[in-house]
Design a binder for these strands. Sequence first.
DNA 1: ACAGGAGTCAAAG
DNA 2: CTTTGACTCCTGT
Length: 153
Amino acid sequence: MEGSIRFGLWFVYISWNLDNVVSKIRFVKQSVPGPVPVSFSQYLAGKKTSLSPLKSIHETDETTFGQIYRQVLKIPYGETRTYGEIAKIAGTVPRVVGMAMKRNMTPILIPCHRVVAIKGLGGYSPDISIKKDLLDLEARIRKKNSAAKFQDD
DNA sequence: ACAGGAGTCAAAG
DNA sequence: CTTTGACTCCTGT
């Protein structure tokens, strides 16, 4: 199944199967006809912090990149880690983490936008503004949720 | 075998 | 503060 949904100036295209395994997510400029999973649209609308039950094809990769992706999946909603931090726990170097993020077939689902440089945002394809928008969204929702429960840090 | 990358750090200008 | 170089290591060709 495939479809797309608007996010700011972009459309987010997603392709998945009946087992909720997502094979491709892409930022495109034109809408692609079709539905998107409920949790996906709710996440992009800031109404949900989890993308469950969706799973990325990368989750079972037996490669160095797979190891990196599994660590990136552990970054909590609204938080960030540096390329160096991910590299250390995944057993590689920062540049390789950057490589893995660029080759990530399922951005958002594997939250590569939560991986930033030690100074600054780092990169993002196809547009760095998308990374900023996603981080702003998560920060805003996280703040709202913690305020509602009186759980300020 | 080789070039290059969504990085990092230290040293120098 | 900006630039440069060394370092690192995985992937595609």
